[in-house]
Design a protein around this nucleic acid. Structure first.
Length: 844
RNA sequence: GCGAGAGUGGCGGAACCGGCAGACGCGCUAGACUUAGGAUCUAGUGCCUUCGGGUGUGGGGGUUCGAGUCCCCCCUCUCGCACCA
């Protein structure tokens, strides 16, 4: 018995596992798979057509080349490979490329820790990964390979930056940003998970820094609305994007201030609660706070509070903490009643959303309620539930947050919330103290990184001319290879490379400095799927005709972890390129499939956890086909999959059985042409098998369309079991069954299917053969079983021809011996007949 | 707290519109072939049973001739968001 740790290990393989057919000497899976991989390459099977007629673009998320690929990676690629081969056999012109998301921190860390050049490290890893992919026999067109850290790729990433800049969608601003102290760089909002860095899970800190942003918020509405177009995306991903964009409709309302001759703007989704405002809260970072407290008795206390709040991380400020705050000693006046409203500072209001100031309506907002209770601020009810005449939130001890009927609201009293919102907005607008507004949770995409191994931001800082873009013809701005100290010091390593930084201003020719930051690697991957369509173009990122011929991606496959990262960024960049008329589609991925993870001993398979099963040694021992079947059969692909030794053995057993069956009958069927088969001469038993083949073609095809690979394989196993049970059969029928069987199996176990195909005497690749169709005339079974129920319980069965009329079935059922026994002296109330399925006799 | 998804044998998982629950595989049991079996083949395998049958899809109720599937309530788990005004 193999122990689990031996899977893919270095033990010499047992010969019976290693061979499809134990009797055949020197016949190893390894050699057979190599043979067909070489053959596919030789005949250019996966070469992309320059001009596709009927295109199909299938793509798996490209990996970061960390070296050894493990089974978790393999799952992603195998799913894509099945689809690609299936579509190929259906006559599509396929684009199925692969590449490397090659910029990123691990290369830099390896360089720091072990003194290896990041470029060298990365290209070594690419070589290893690529070699492993070749062992898997994946159907990539390697001519289309791209590498994001190669200058001929990142030149165009920089080009993209310049285009965004030209359209005012790339800008620089000072902002409070997320800083990861471990990675020593800033992060975009999407890259912070529960207050920690998505990569290393160190709690992030806030820092005020000048950084480059992409204005993704300009696209918030379209990114949200167009989710509706993505009917072939999984709902959870769409929901996550929807929540992330976080659109809310409401109003901006201005409150005038007593201390200074300025008003403060708040955002609220509930203008109908305006009469319930009993206080205001400003975020500690709000720009007006210093002005408000200047010279007051509260000044010191407020300053102290702000200072403390500033020290806390986001996590400490938000999670599970009782709200606190301080009174500023200052007041605002109510825009409609003129009432004096006390202004507080509290860190439950954050600068990052809305205007950084809120109107406090404790009666109708849970957070405001909690705050008001703590500081004994009045709670004034202005909305009542429709069904309750006199409602008081303070008495009830909880905020009423639903919509309802307005009360205590002067002329608006007795209006519904919906009506009241409209009326109040109208009046605010007339008085120019408020208007309808829509706010988003989505923030602009912070793309500067203070690290070396990324695409340099193509910008130059000139004392005279300000920020000047590098002219397009000067791209790429190359990363310096010499004299770079990579040790993180909180600023970009490039900043201290004089030869890189010092340059001439493109505008005035005077001395100037290059921007020393590099771009977020998610910028690299936000457009890579476009480059595959024209990966060798030296003049432009892609040719218009070529990209329009291939885009959008028909089927994208990857992990759900990119739901609001890569997938959102890619949609944004695609829409931008559509707007500047570079591409004809404004959504990059027509269909998305998110596969589940591979677990080993209950934990996600990963190198760092030490439970990764590397693909190389595994394939070496068991073959790629066995790995593919194990992955595809064990669970539906969207679900997590527990990798087990038993699963591997079962899959290997299945493939051996397929091969053995083929070999057993090879002599018999080798020279048969199925065109000579006469279905009319088949015996009833043979006809049944013939129909089984047609039924299997139908079911496997159907399941492939739905990504139900596990059930498709179950049907193939079932058919194989039936074939084994047939002792003697018509040669033509056997040939027919084996041929169709190999075709159906080929997307799943391509090497074995190709091998058998050749043994059957074919001289062209099985993948150049049409996917089999079924004859609808041979789908229905020769005879069917009808269940006889009494009061819904199965009591007997009868066998009959399909579509037997109701009367005949009824009579037969009533004549059934077992049934008769149940019916003795009972009154039949009614009989329900479901054609070809069951008959239910209802008795008293 | 909000949002999404899921709960079916010893295990992974099947079951289209409400119509035979447990396909297929693993594991297990017995047998065959064997020097051997960790190969292969055959048969069996939800649970209980007095061998008639009873019972069974997280728990409880309901609709229906009939519910894993539809409706209501509750429990558990996974994932995402998390003071979003």
């Amino acid at each position: 018995m193999l122990r689990e740790h031996e899977v893919g290990g270095s033990n010499p393989p047992a010969p019976t596992i290693f061979c499809y057919e134990e009797e055949m000497e020197g016949y190893s899976v390894k050699e057979v798979e190599k043979k067909w991989q070489d053959y596919w390459k030789k005949i250019n099977l996966f070469k992309t057509k320059a001009v596709p007629q009927k295109k199909y673009y299938v793509l798996e998320m490209f990996p970061y080349p960390s070296g050894d690929l493990h089974i978790g990676h393999m799952k992603n690629y195998v799913i894509g490979d099945v689809i690609s081969r299936y579509k190929l056999m259906q006559g599509f012109d396929i684009l199925h490329p692969m590449g490397w998301d090659a910029f990123g921190l691990p290369a830099e860390n390896a360089a720091i820790q072990r003194g290896i050049n990041p470029e060298k490290w990365t290209y070594n890893n690419i070589a290893v990964s690529k070699n492993t992919m070749k062992l898997m026999g994946l159907s990539y067109d390697w001519e289309r390979e791209i590498t994001t850290c190669a200058p001929d790729y990142y030149k165009w990433t920089q080009w993209l930056f310049l285009k965004l800049y030209a359209h005012k969608l790339a800008y620089r601003k000072k902002a409070s940003v997320n800083w990861c102290p471990s990675c020593q760089t800033v992060l975009a909002n999407e890259q912070v998970e529960e207050g920690t860095c998505y990569r290393c899970h160190t709690p992030v800190k806030k820092r005020d820094l000048v950084q480059w942003f992409f204005k993704i918020t300009d696209y918030a509405d379209r990114l949200l609305e167009d989710l509706e177009k993505l009917d072939k995306w999984p709902l959870p991903v769409k929901t996550m994007q929807q929540n992330w964009i976080g659109r809310s409709e409401g109003a901006e309302i201005d409150f005038s201030l007593d201390k200074i001759d300025q008003s403060v703007r708040v955002f609220t989704t509930r203008p109908d609660t305006l009469f319930g405002v009993t206080f205001m809260v400003f975020a500690p970072e709000h720009e007006l706070v210093p002005k408000l407290i200047k010279g007051t008795s509260q000044e010191d206390e407020v300053k102290k509070y702000i200072e403390q709040a500033g020290k806390k991380s986001d996590l400490e400020r938000t999670s599970l903490k009782e709200k606190d705050g301080v009174f500023t000693g200052s007041y605002a006046s109510h825009p409609l009643t003129g009432e004096k409203i006390p202004i507080w500072v509290a860190d439950y209001v954050i600068m990052g959303y809305g205007t950084g100031a809120i109107m406090g309506v404790p009666a109708h907002d849970e957070r405001d309620f909690e705050f008001a209770q703590k500081y004994k601020i009045p709670i004034k009810t202005v909305i009542r539930p429709k069904a309750v005449e006199d409602f008081d939130a303070a008495q009830k001890g909880a905020a009423y947050t639903e919509k309802g009927i307005m009360v205590n609201s002067e002329k608006y009293t007795n209006l519904t919330s919906e009506k009241g919102i409209k009326e109040i907005l109208k009046d605010l607008e007339t008085n120019k103290i408020g208007k309808a507004a829509i706010y988003y949770k989505l923030r602009d995409w912070l793309i500067s990184r203070q690290r070396y191994w990324g695409a340099p931001i193509p910008m130059i800082h000139c004392e005279k001319c300000g920020v000047v873009p590098v002219p397009e013809e000067d791209l790429p701005v190359l990363l310096p290879e010499e004299g770079v100290d990579l040790t993180p010091k909180g600023k970009s390593p490039l900043a201290s490379v004089d030869a890189f930084v010092n340059t001439a201003c493109p505008k005035c020719g005077g001395s100037a400095q290059r921007d020393a930051d590099t771009m977020d690697t998610f910028v690299d991957s936000s457009w890579y799927f476009l480059r595959y369509t024209d990966n060798k173009n030296k003049k432009e990122p892609f040719n218009k005709a070529k990209i329009d011929a291939w885009m959008p991606v028909d089927q994208y496959i990857g992990g759900i972890e990119h739901a609001v990262l890569h997938l959102l960024y890619s949609r944004f960049i695609t829409k931008f390129l559509y707007d500047i008329k570079r591409i004809a589609y404004d959504e990059p991925f027509k269909a998305l499939f998110t596969q589940g993870m591979v677990l080993n001993k209950g934990e996600v398979m990963s190198k760092s956890k030490g439970n990764a099963v590397p693909v190389g040694p595994f394939v070496e021992r068991w073959g790629s086909d066995t790995g593919r079947i194990t992955i595809l059969f064990a669970a539906p692909p969207e679900r997590d999959l527990e990798w087990t030794e038993e699963g591997v053995q079962g899959s290997n057993r299945f493939l051996n059985r397929v091969y053995r069956y083929g070999m057993q009958h090879l002599d018999e069927v080798k020279h048969i042409d199925i065109k000579d088969m006469e279905v009319a001469t088949l015996t009833p038993e043979e006809l049944k098998l013939y129909k089984n083949v047609h039924q299997t073609i139908k079911k496997v095809t159907h399941d492939l369309e739905l990504f139900h690979f596990n059930t498709a394989l179950a049907f193939l196993m079932e058919l194989l079991n039936r074939l084994y049970r047939v002792q003697k059969a018509n040669k033509f029928l056997l040939r027919f069954a084996i041929e169709k069987y190999m075709l159906l199996l080929s997307p799943f176990a391509p090497h074995l299917a190709e091998e058998m195909w050749q043994k059957l005497g074919f001289t062209t690749s099985i993948f150049k053969t049409d996917w089999p169709g079924f004859d609808p005339n041979y789908i229905q079974d020769v005879e069917i079983e009808i269940v006889i129920q009494i009061n819904g319980k199965v009591r007997s069965r009868l066998t009959t021809e399909p579509d037997t009329p109701e009367e005949a079935v009824k009579n037969a059922a009533l004549e059934d011996e077992k049934i008769k026994k149940y019916l003795a002296a009972k009154e039949i109330k009614k009989i329900i007949y479901i054609k070809n399925k069951l008959i239910n006799i209802v008795i008293k």
